[in-house]
Nucleic acid binder design. Structure first.
Lengths: 222, 222
DNA sequence: TATAGCTTTACGGGTTTCCGTAAGGATTAC
DNA sequence: GTAATCCTTACGGAAACCCGTAAAGCTATA
């Protein structure tokens, strides 16, 4: 079994249960942090001391409070860790169940397992830890119904997300076009952007921009 | 201390910790349900058997799965329970931290305490349980900064929410006006609705309708 | 009843979205 | 090299919005 595991989870009510699982599995060293920044620090320190972690279990969303932080989310934490210890095994344990988000975690951040917080998530988590230890790949908790071959959501790319984000911030077409030109994102003609928005509206069956953004919010795309 | 407590919480990772707290406080009877429907059933049954619960601790949002349910949220559960056992003490334990939502829980549903899931929520929860037992009123976990005298959000009423909801569903002004006439909600002229939207835009500092809905989604108003 | 004050509705013009058509440019096929 | 195709951009008219102003309706008060 794993020898040294780091848990990044802000909610104390949840971390208690996660730590319990690890204890059951007889992991000798279990560390727990409530902030992503702390997590990165611990990983770096462990590396420096030549006693690196061999597993990270992290949540995605962390509440913000008075404290100033650099890393705001599990995504950012993983991205930062990938720069210093890319081979660290990573399990994400989160309430998020949007396939788009989860796919990008596997494809872009190289996580080993994804477990959704749910009614039986503790046993799912236990299994995921075991599977990860046995070098299985792309482990998904069983209540997630989508498959990786499902082309539907994968086709929404970062370009679309950028548009949706700016729209949700109150930008009008012309401003988006300008912004894209500044960032040299192409295509950046108002017309192309309009067309892309149109595709998104058809795809998500939205009546208008307002509706589209409401749906995008529901899907967790922005 | 309380003698018989019902916990409604779908996430097993959290309910474990909640039950632990109750055990520490030496509550003799602790029941736990993962669905709101079950919760209502248990309350009714306990009443019928003349051994009613004296405390409910419930989450607000419950994940939906294959199972068909009548009650989808903690709000609905409380509303239903209020019809059969209005004097049951109620603590809400949720991640939600939007003052508008929380205020309505106290004012409309008569809950006794609200504890946000956070980095120190277990001790907050313990304190809230004790305070509720001592008949304190309107108990708020300490990380919530708003006050009940704060007029800001309380002025957003159900009329505004209705508008925001329809907007987020892709309705245009004219359709909203028609819908309101059908439901005999007044005012229902397109102009009045437009004016109200305008107020909301000023209030939330939104540039346009798209922006407004994005913000409303963030605030959990729709 | 008359008047003032507020709310609701109506109206109009400027802006943005919405949606179809088409021109210009790049890439691919042959 | 040329044609076909796709992608990007431009344009224009109708619909919906944004926002200010004014009329109509309601309520309270004297």
């Amino acid at each position: 079994m794993f020898k040294k595991v780091l848990v990044a989870e802000d909610l104390d009510s949840i971390s208690i249960a996660v730590v319990q699982v690890l204890e059951e599995l007889q992991v000798p060293v279990i560390h727990h942090v409530k902030y992503c920044d702390e997590g990165l620090l611990k990983v770096k320190k462990a590396l420096a001391e030549k006693e690196p972690y061999d597993l990270l279990i992290t949540d995605l969303s962390f509440k913000s409070d008075h404290r100033k932080v650099n890393l705001n989310s599990g995504d950012e934490l993983i991205e930062a860790i990938n720069k210093v210890q890319p081979k660290l095994k990573k399990i994400v344990f989160s309430i998020e169940d949007k396939s788009y988000r989860i796919k990008s975690l596997f494809n872009d951040l190289g996580i080993n397992a994804y477990v959704t917080k749910g009614r039986n998530s503790i046993s799912e988590l236990r299994n995921a830890i075991k599977s990860a230890f046995n070098n299985e790949e792309k482990i998904l908790s069983s209540d997630l119904s989508f498959s990786f071959n499902d082309k539907a959501l994968i086709e929404i790319e970062s370009y679309d997300i950028s548009i949706l984000k700016l729209l949700s911030q109150g930008y009008i077409l012309e401003s988006i076009s300008k912004e894209f030109k500044d960032l040299s994102i192409t295509p950046n003609g108002t017309s192309s952007i309009e067309k892309r928005i149109n595709k998104l509206k058809i795809y998500f069956k939205a009546n208008n921009n307002v509706h589209l953004i409401a749906i995008a919010k529901d899907f967790g795309l922005v």
